[in-house]
Design a binder for these strands. Structure first.
Length: 417
DNA sequence: TCTGGGGTCCTAGGACCC
DNA sequence: TCTGGGGTCCTAGGACCC
């Protein structure tokens, strides 16, 4: 049997572990608070009762937050990753669930080597209890014979209090369960496919499962067919984790609009230095670099522009100077004058393991001197804080986007040096 | 005024090969 | 005049996930 574990209101739950006095109060976690507010990323059920939703822009719900004295936190992703690892460790040590693996920061899959429902339930109760005791995080738990059905079971565990956080979908109740879950509640059917399927009268997961496989193949792609098979209890998803990530990204929405190329240069070189350091900490190299920029899509009154470009490197690298150099060159190529940029990012792709990668005879970048320079830089930055040693193009050491020579959304200000 | 930041996989179509 | 038929690989963009 496949087990799926999903942490309830994960970011908010982690904040409550740090601030126990907030238990039972409405709590939300948002990003970018310092820069004037981003969107709500996580919220407790008390906050949901106030009508708040995940994805709400903070500025739109500020009144609700203030009048109800909602506790708001800035997202601290490092803290949430640490908690995720702690949960991982706790469950593995307990040895009830085997082949336990992380699916996302707040979700896990594993297997349980028993199949009679009362025993399964008993085991899962122990798992849920030990996570709560050791980590303080409430979780929901689903169990069935495929990944998709296990996730579906978790959906029930979350939506119906009577399940007490644990739901098992056995072959006997599968059909009944699928009739109760709307098509958009199924893992793998997103906001594009759901409305299209509904046009054909496919409203519930059961409607979807009742289609013939060839019909599903016509309506959707192979991923849709996989979902369909999984709903029938036929394993079709491979969860074996890849050795390393395929791409690493760093992107930011600016709290202001930027028009000048020099300012974008400074911001991008910082993003590039960040991803390069992440790449090295994973002991990996990249073979492609992509840079993208775009204006604010919400400002329909302003001219819109977005563009990206990718460079294929002659030799795989994790060298900051090289990655920054190529990134800035790409930016120069896609930058168009006269637009107010709101967002920019860099993606490192074609990732390979450093040790396993064949050296290039003509490689002038990954020399032993450059490697030693990067190692020294990383050591210093680990000791004294990120950005202590940096390229001059990265600008001020505060790492905060400098504001004097940038425009605000409403009023372009004259450039000051 | 103010709307996130990561990831993965699939497919169509172009470029190229014989 | 008449211009095939079979492949592979790569990439951009879309759809999905958290």
């Amino acid at each position: 049997m496949i087990v799926h574990i999903d942490c309830n209101s994960f970011y908010a739950s982690v904040e409550i572990v740090s601030h126990p006095e907030l238990a039972g109060r409405p709590v939300v976690v948002a990003n970018n608070n310092e820069a004037g507010g981003g969107i709500i990323l996580a919220l407790t059920k008390e906050a949901k009762k106030l009508g708040l939703r995940r994805g709400d822009p903070v500025f739109k719900v500020r009144k609700t937050l203030e009048t109800n004295n909602v506790a708001m936190f800035d997202a601290d992703l490092r803290k949430y990753r640490d908690m995720s690892r702690r949960i991982m460790k706790t469950v593995i040590e307990q040895e009830i669930i085997i082949n336990f693996l992380q699916y996302s920061v707040d979700e896990f899959f594993g297997e349980i080597p028993v199949d009679d429902p009362p025993t399964v339930r008993q085991c899962l109760e122990q798992v849920v209890a030990v996570i709560n005791d050791n980590c303080g995080i409430p979780v929901s738990c689903g169990c069935s014979c495929t990944y998709t059905l296990a996730k579906t079971a978790t959906w029930f565990a979350k939506h119906y209090e009577a399940y007490n956080g644990i739901c098992i979908i056995t072959p006997e109740v599968r059909e009944k369960a699928l009739k109760k879950i709307p098509i958009e509640g199924i893992w793998g059917i997103g906001r594009r496919s759901a409305p299209r399927l509904k046009q054909y009268g496919i409203i519930t997961a059961y409607d979807f499962a009742s289609l013939g496989e060839s019909v599903v193949n016509m309506l959707m792609t192979t991923t849709g067919v996989r979902t369909w098979r999984e709903l029938h209890g036929i394993p079709a998803i491979d969860m074996t984790a890849p050795e390393h990530q395929q791409s690493i990204m760093h992107s930011r929405t600016f709290p202001f609009m930027v028009t000048e190329l020099e300012k974008l240069h400074e911001l991008l070189s910082n993003y590039a230095a960040d991803v390069a350091a992440n790449l090295r900490s994973d002991n990996c190299l990249c073979r492609t670099i992509t840079v993208f920029v775009c204006t604010n899509p919400h400002r329909t009154d302003l001219p819109q522009y977005s563009n990206s470009d990718t460079a294929r490197l002659a030799a795989a690298t994790s060298n900051t100077q090289e990655i920054v150099r190529v990134a800035l060159h790409l930016l120069d190529g896609i930058y168009a004058k006269g637009y107010k940029y709101k967002r920019m990012g860099i993606v490192l792709g074609g990732i390979v393991e450093d040790a396993g990668w064949q050296l290039d005879l003509f490689d002038k970048v990954n020399t032993s001197e450059n490697r030693r320079l990067m190692e020294a830089t990383d050591r210093l930055n680990a000791k004294y804080g990120r950005g202590t040693v940096r390229l001059s193009v990265q600008g001020s050491p505060s790492r905060k986007p400098p504001t004097p020579s940038t425009d605000t959304d409403s009023q372009p200000t004259p450039t000051k040096s």
